[in-house]
Every structure is written in structure tokens, then in C-alpha cells.
């Protein structure tokens, strides 16, 4: 594997707490992401994993605890701030605009303008530069079964749309990519392609936090698995150290473990 567990963690959450009235969604949760790894986050519905992920992507402001990026404390008040620091999120509902084309979607909200007076005064978009960079990124990730970069996203299949969303995160994410259920809505063949794509992104040096309900997918691609239960991390295992049924047992509370195969 390409992960580097001896290095400084790229992203760390320490003792994060988030309460909604009397409900504690995150209860002193920790999470550690090392350079070059895919960290899967699993947990039962209501275990608080999506709240934790939202805290890491800036969509939610935690009540207590700290988030460290490259060892330095950071505070996000919005997803835009997290994004500016290099944390990209691929949302479950993809956040792509169906009527716009692939290149427009990749650069949506971060368009490139022409150099010189055309860009500064007339605000003219540099469509060619955006198309070229989009093309290059899609090619690099092996997504060029999509033939035409200027075709509307709505003409793509579910897996190809997922590919566009992943390509966008890989294009702008400089530190971390967070993926929320990337294979949930896909068929068998398309899931396979997306899993390969996730590995491809990891192999290009971007660490990934992968949220998924699909145990076979998690065990196939993850380097480590963070199991969330009752608002905190119940255990961190690897696909080699535990079986799928053991992971489910930890997730549901039928089995208790307190070992981090890396930290220990």
C-alpha cells in the first residue's frame, strides 16, 4: 500500500462534540487520516458518521474539539473555507448541474477567466483552457469513455456523472477528498469503475475518506476502516485484521475492540 503511517497525519479530528438540543450527535469523536491512504468510515444509521464528515467538510461547526490539517488547527465556517484549504467533498447527490456540460461542471463556481483585459474588464471565460484542463483530468483518471467534454452531464450515465464529480474533487482537492456513498446509486459494472477510480485518485497521492454502507466495497478499497458507533470511534481496523462480519459486529455493538492496528 502507498499509505505512510509514520508520517504526520494529514487530517485529524480530536474529541469533536456536536449537540442538537439534548441529542449528542458526535460525542468526543476522533479520526485520523494519513497521507496516501483510503480511510473508510462505516457506522449504523444514526451513529453520527455523517455529522462527523460534515464537521470535516465545513458543513457543520462543532461545539467542542479541534480539527488539525497538516498538524495545524483549522476552523471552518462554511464548506467554501474547507475547500479553499484543499478539502474537497463529493456529495451523495453529486452537486452537478445536469444541463451544463462536463467542463462547465468541473469548474462551476471556480471558473477561469481569460488573461488580460478580456478577463479583467469583460469578465470573459477562458472556455478553451477549462476544456483542456477538464479533458486532461478526465483522461488522467481513465474517464475518457466519456467522449465529448462539451456534452451535457444529463446525457451521462450514473457512473459517468459520479466520475465527473470525482474528477472535480481531484482537480481542486490538494489535501483530502471526502466521498459520501459514491457507489450507492450505481449498478455492478459502474460501481466497479468508480471503485477503480477511487483507487486511481489515491494512487495519485490524494488521501480519501470514504463513507459507505457497502461492506464488500469498503473491504476492497480501504486501507483502514474507521468504525463509528454511538457518536464516536468504536475501533479502527484494517481489511486484514478483521473480517466483514467482525466489522459489522463492532458496528452494532455485538463485539468490543479497542485496538488501533496502526497506533498500537
Amino acid at each position: 500500500m502507498t499509505a505512510h503511517y509514520d508520517q504526520q497525519p494529514i487530517l485529524q479530528a480530536r474529541s469533536i462534540v456536536k449537540r442538537y438540543g439534548s441529542v449528542t450527535a458526535i460525542d468526543h469523536a476522533d479520526l485520523t487520516l494519513y497521507p496516501g491512504e483510503i480511510l473508510a468510515v462505516i457506522g449504523d444509521n444514526g451513529a453520527g458518521k455523517s455529522s462527523l464528515i460534515k464537521a470535516l467538510s465545513g458543513a457543520l461547526i462543532p461545539d467542542e474539539g479541534e480539527i488539525l490539517l497538516d498538524g495545524k488547527p483549522v476552523h471552518f465556517n462554511s464548506p467554501m473555507q474547507a475547500r479553499e484549504l484543499g478539502i474537497e467533498t463529493v456529495y451523495q447527490n453529486l452537486a452537478v448541474s445536469p444541463a451544463l456540460n462536463i467542463a462547465d461542471n468541473l469548474f462551476l463556481g471556480r471558473e477561469l477567466r481569460k488573461p488580460g483585459i478580456l478577463g479583467s474588464v469583460f469578465r470573459m471565460l477562458d472556455k478553451r483552457a477549462m476544456e483542456e484542463r477538464a479533458q486532461a483530468k478526465m483522461q488522467e483518471l481513465g474517464l475518457m469513455t466519456i467522449q465529448n467534454i462539451s456534452q451535457a452531464v444529463e446525457s451521462l450515465s450514473g457512473g459517468q456523472r459520479q466520475g465527473v464529480a470525482v474528477a472535480r474533487s481531484a482537480l481542486f482537492g490538494s489535501k483530502v477528498v471526502i466521498m459520501d456513498e459514491p457507489t450507492a446509486a450505481l449498478g455492478v459494472k459502474e460501481s466497479r469503475r468508480v471503485l477503480n477510480l477511487i483507487k486511481e485518485v489515491r494512487d495519485r497521492g490524494l488521501p480519501i475518506i470514504l463513507i459507505s454502507h457497502n461492506m464488500p466495497h469498503v473491504f476492497e478499497v480501504a486501507d483502514r476502516i474507521h468504525i463509528h458507533r454511538l457518536g464516536k470511534c468504536a475501533a479502527t481496523i484494517t481489511p486484514d485484521s478483521h473480517t466483514m462480519s467482525e466489522a459489522v459486529a463492532i458496528m452494532t455493538g455485538a463485539m468490543e475492540v479497542n485496538s488501533d492496528p496502526v497506533a498500537a
Binding site: 447527490n93 452537486a95 452537478v96 445536469p98 451544463l100 471558473e111 469578465r123 471565460l125
Partner: peptide, 24 residues
Amino acid sequence: NWTAWGRHVYATGDDPAAAKLAGI
């Protein structure tokens, strides 16, 4: 068609939730 604002107008009309998540 040639400014970011125009793209954002289309994206907002097309799917406002997606546009918001994209940072618009």
C-alpha cells in the same frame, strides 16, 4: 454564455441545491 455569472444563472435555475453545494 461568456461570463461566470451567466453559468451561475443557468446552474441556479437548473438545480439550486447542486449549485449551492458547488459553492455558488
